[in-house]
């Protein structure tokens, strides 16, 4: 289990993290979300021991970060961090050696990983000769090849096409199935929702949301209604308790002040006797994220 306890971190007068705590159990994925500058990368750097927190501590199954613990961490940074002029296999071997895995073991694994991630290129090629997507896949190999217990992905889907993004998602889910502790950050809330068991939202270094994805979505209740019926926007406008009405090709997206308004709308719809869709849902993660960002 990975535990982060009451972490504070300041750079001069800037408080980058303020009393941040969370934990990730084996076989769990934690999504870390927040705007740029919210403190996600600082959190990752503290977990990796690249930064020392002012207060608080990080524990890996009860142990502080040390050389042995580092060997059990796989880290995929936001910006590609590889040697462009070095042969792909040489750098995978070198970086795995730094994680304590022998050359022979890494060499034996490389072909399998190349095939699994469908890398277009030879392992003897220089990295700079690969496309950006394939370079990102090499970075993923470097993250996973030493079979780490703890995985940290900083914006793993950034710049990937949908096919490659799917390969990354499958890889992350496969690691989860093996019982790894996984943290990842992303600005794409669909990915966060799809992959995360729990999530933390940081805003100016503070936790503003924490919990399972379904719990967080249900905190605000089912305040979204999707409707396709003969009711017009002026009819809907007469119903009290609707905060916002959006219409696209005859389909309405309503935001309610309170979930209890939903059944009232349904009654009105039923009276018309003519409707194709009525669906009352909680806010999406994306909407919650935007709402939290706007909150003062």
């Amino acid at each position: 289990m990975l535990k982060i306890k009451n972490i504070d971190k300041s750079f001069g007068s800037l408080q980058a993290l303020n009393n941040v705590s969370f934990e990730v159990k084996e076989g769990e994925i934690l999504g870390l979300i927040g705007q740029n500058g919210a403190g996600k990368t600082t959190t990752f750097r503290i977990i990796l021991g690249l930064l020392q927190p002012d207060q608080g501590m990080v524990e890996f199954s009860g142990r502080r970060v040390n050389s042995q613990v580092l060997n059990q961490i796989g880290y995929l940074p936001e910006e590609r961090g590889l040697f462009p002029r070095m042969r792909i296999m040489d750098q995978i071997i070198y970086l795995a050696e730094l994680k304590g895995q022998s050359r022979a073991v890494t060499k034996a694994k490389i072909d399998e990983y190349f095939e699994r991630f469908e890398i277009k290129g030879k392992k003897t090629d220089k990295l700079k000769n690969l496309s950006k997507g394939n370079q990102q896949k090499v970075q993923l190999i470097v993250t996973l090849i030493h079979d780490p217990k703890y995985l940290i992905f900083d914006e793993p889907f950034s710049g990937l096409d949908p096919v490659n993004a799917q390969i990354f998602k499958e890889a992350i889910l496969a690691e989860k199935a093996k019982g790894k502790c996984i943290i990842f950050s992303s600005h794409n809330m669909d990915n966060v929702e799809e992959l995360s068991d729990n999530l933390i939202m940081l805003k100016s270094g503070k936790e503003v949301l924490s919990g399972s994805v379904s719990d967080i979505r249900n905190v605000y209740g089912r305040v979204k209604v999707f409707l396709e019926s003969s009711l017009t926007s002026s009819d809907l406008g007469k119903i009290s308790g609707i905060k916002d009405i959006k219409e696209k090709s005859g389909r309405y997206e309503l935001t309610l002040k309170d979930p209890s308004i939903g059944p009232k709308i349904l009654k009105q719809v039923e009276k018309t006797g003519d409707f194709l869709e009525f669906s009352q849902q909680p806010l999406t993660l994306d909407e919650i994220f935007k709402m939290k960002v706007r909150e003062k």
């Binding site: 580092l70 590609r80 961090g81 590889l82 040697f83 970086l95 730094l98």
Partner: peptide
């Protein structure tokens, strides 16, 4: 060059 290629973060997440 290693710093410019942003590889230091990877290296320093592996060794002191």
């Amino acid at each position: 060059r290693e710093k410019g290629e942003r590889v230091m973060e990877i290296i320093l997440s592996s060794t002191e």
